[in-house]
Design a binder for these strands. Structure first.
Lengths: 188, 188
DNA sequence: AAACTATAGTATCGGATCAATACCATATTG
DNA sequence: CAATATGGTATTGATCCGATACTATAGTTT
């Protein structure tokens, strides 16, 4: 009967956070899904800051995501930049205004308040449990993992400490390898 | 930085399950929130099967929940019954058709598939971690817990094994004490 | 080089969510 | 019996979301 209980807990937590998020971002005139899209763009790397990548991450259709991004652009929270090599591709960058919205909204007030009641060990256990659950669900269903480069099979660290992506054959900085990527290859 | 990561994982899992749920219930012509409302009504006790209780559980406004329930009733998945003592109150019962929809949809296919990749110990750990996180968030924010009667401060087990709710002064069966209640009093 | 195909992205439409407001009916309190 | 509180419904408007159709660019085939 454990799957049912786990499912229930996730559903409850999901409702709590979503509703709290809704209240928190009302002052900015944003919707929960818009904040999530903005959040994604703030933690992804330069291969993954496009409408299509956001579509895969959010699990919606590209048309839906397109208008979500349109709203965010109109509000001045992100800017669009056409790719120099492939003119079909648009890169999305979170503006300073967008960053400050994220800073104020993520994690949500309720969540921040709740975490003060958890010690470091408990937080670690919860984090590990969630990571295991997420990765198991993703593997069992052949889904993209959207992990950070430092845990990616394509990532290669050279002797001088620099990083190289073996998929794109491009160097990555130590900051960039902490960002999530749509091409992430999880370890076997 | 743990709070951020935990928040991210919950958000990811939430998106995964919601989108999967959306696909799974499309054949019934239902929306995710409608399935969640139906699910709640299938696991709550007789003090908690009303529109107001569902409103508190789902964290929305009563107007929103009212029309969600209206759709479920029109589809024949639940039935309404006016309370005999307080004629303002309506009790909601999941029909046989509603039960079969729930059986087919909860947990979602993706989730069931994923859980086959987790052994019993791992499932237990994840369940415990989620329970701790949920209860901490609820306590820190003075929220209702919606726990089962068997873990409620009002619940009293008599010597002959029968149960009594000290809040309503009514007897409860062994089946009923496994259901969730809007008046649940969490242990100190 | 021309034609075909695939991919990234946008535009539009319709059904649904959701909050806000107003409203009705029943209980409870003074 | 009047005033207030509570449970629930109806309506409206902004937004979400998927489906479909469309444009533009890139790559591939002949």
């Amino acid at each position: 009967m454990h799957p049912h209980k786990i499912y229930d807990y996730i559903e409850r937590l999901s409702n709590l956070l979503r509703n709290d998020s809704r209240r928190g971002i009302a002052e900015f005139g944003l919707q929960p899904i818009q904040l999530e899209a903005l959040h994604y763009l703030s933690i992804c790397n330069r291969y993954s800051d496009t409408p299509m990548a956001a579509t895969e991450y959010l699990g919606q259709t590209k048309g839906t995501v397109s208008q979500t991004l349109k709203v965010l652009e109109k509000k001045g929270l992100l800017s669009k930049h056409v790719d120099s090599h492939d003119k079909r591709v648009t890169h999305l960058k979170v503006t300073a205004a967008g960053q400050s919205v994220l800073q104020a909204s993520i994690p949500s007030p309720l969540f921040v308040q709740g975490c003060t009641g958890l010690n470091a060990v408990a937080q670690r256990e919860i984090e590990d449990a969630l990571e295991k659950l997420l990765s198991t669900l993703q593997h069992s269903n052949n889904m993209k993992t959207f992990g950070v480069c430092s845990s990616c099979g394509y990532n290669q660290q050279n002797q001088d400490g620099s990083y190289l992506c073996q998929l794109t054959q491009e160097p990555l900085t130590s900051v960039e390898v902490q960002l999530i990527c749509r091409e992430h290859l999880a370890a076997a």
